[in-house]
Design a protein around this nucleic acid. Structure first.
Lengths: 221, 221
DNA sequence: CTAGAATACGAATAAAACATCGCATTCGCT
DNA sequence: AGCGAATGCGATGTTTTATTCGTATTCTAG
């Protein structure tokens, strides 16, 4: 019987006083530094505690294990990135395909600017990926893309829309990971964003059910 | 002074008798099983030795550390995959762009078929990525793609060719990783391969210096 | 002011993993 | 057969890491 203890990355105790709130923040900040400095496989609670200037004991008051700290970092980053993408993809001042291109450029640039952190976080992902809380993130991303596709491909079969959402999402995230792990220059990243953006736009235009609007829905570079 | 011992993944001793050659093979086979079963972060020399039915001591006769075992697995897999892709991309019986599409489909299917192994190997990559031997693989891939581009974009500026090679290579490998880490069905993978293939073909046709041949260089699906 | 809750501490415990070394066994060759 | 080299062994020492627990300190409500 292989018993694998259930992965739990939820908070152990909620900070109630000001000092503990501050402590949790300090831990997360320090954790980010340690992760970048030492890499995912040298990320230990002891190092984080030391970098944060607190004791291990204090750390364990608010995080049940080191995975929870990493998951906390990932959650922060995810929410921030998703918020930004959501804002762009729902900005009705631009035609949909232009929004997508802006989203891609913005996302790729953020992967580039925070390359060290993002790639280290990605290396650490296997440690918390099994946790149920982790699924929610992926679902949130899928949903955002699905909503966007509903606007872009209004008359497409839901099956096809789902594929388009899946495909575009997968392409963005996978190329994004490549960018952060390879540490590219901003210039290269811009060329990548352009190329991927154009390719995805022409892919989407060729989809059944694409709504051609009169005023520049193609957003050429 | 933080001294980080230099990463070495080369072989410690070369097997000279039949039994030791067999032992090395058994270790690598067992290592692959352990990697899939237990994941990269539970991959230990002890477990590998046990699974291979040999002692740890014997294992350390031929591998200086566990990273070397993982690197051995990665090297095997890389050579096999590269050989296959090379064969396809240089098969002059097909027009270049069709070769590319076949290569993509073949590669994606292999990522799908061996998803568990490939994704576990990818998780383990940070452990040996720092080793100098590891660079050679990337370089080999770059070169293959560069050669292909020389044929496909003969009159392009070398700068543009390099970008095209980089872009196509990055897209293939990053989407390939996504496929293996997500454990998709063959059907989905085929749709991905088709979409990526078409997109890359149209990207390449739009490049300056694309050689239009009379006999079907566009390889439409 | 004071009691009790919250917070912080860090030495100590336990578990896991890496890698070695001295010794036993087997092989290949003459 | 018999010798030296190659191979195989696994208990052992060392190091690293995760996590706990008893105690000391600080806060906050009444």
């Amino acid at each position: 019987m292989a018993r694998s203890k259930k992965p739990v990355v939820g908070a152990r105790k909620r900070p109630r006083q000001a000092r503990s709130t501050q402590l949790v923040a300090a831990i997360l900040q320090a954790a980010a530094r340690v992760l970048v400095r030492d890499g995912a496989h040298r990320f230990t609670t002891a190092r984080v505690a030391e970098a944060a200037g607190v004791s291990v004991g204090s750390l364990y008051q608010y995080f049940p294990n080191k995975e929870a700290i990493l998951f906390g970092l990932q959650t922060e980053e995810w929410h921030q990135t998703m918020g930004e993408l959501r804002r762009i993809l729902r900005d009705s001042r631009m035609p949909p395909l232009q929004r997508l291109q802006v989203a891609i450029r913005t996302f790729f640039q953020s992967e580039c600017d925070e390359a060290a952190f993002r790639s280290a976080l990605e290396e650490a992902a296997p440690l918390y990926r099994e946790a149920p809380e982790s699924r929610a993130h992926a679902e949130e991303g899928r949903e955002l893309m699905e909503t966007f596709m509903k606007e872009l491909l209004p008359s497409a079969a839901s099956r096809d829309r789902a594929f388009a959402a899946d495909f575009v999402g997968t392409l963005m995230s996978s190329v994004g990971k490549a960018i952060s792990s390879q540490g590219r220059s901003r210039l290269e990243v811009d060329k990548f964003a352009d190329a991927v953006g154009k390719m995805l736009c022409s892919f989407l235009k060729s989809c059944q059910g694409y709504a051609r609007t009169s005023k520049g829905g193609d957003a050429r570079g």
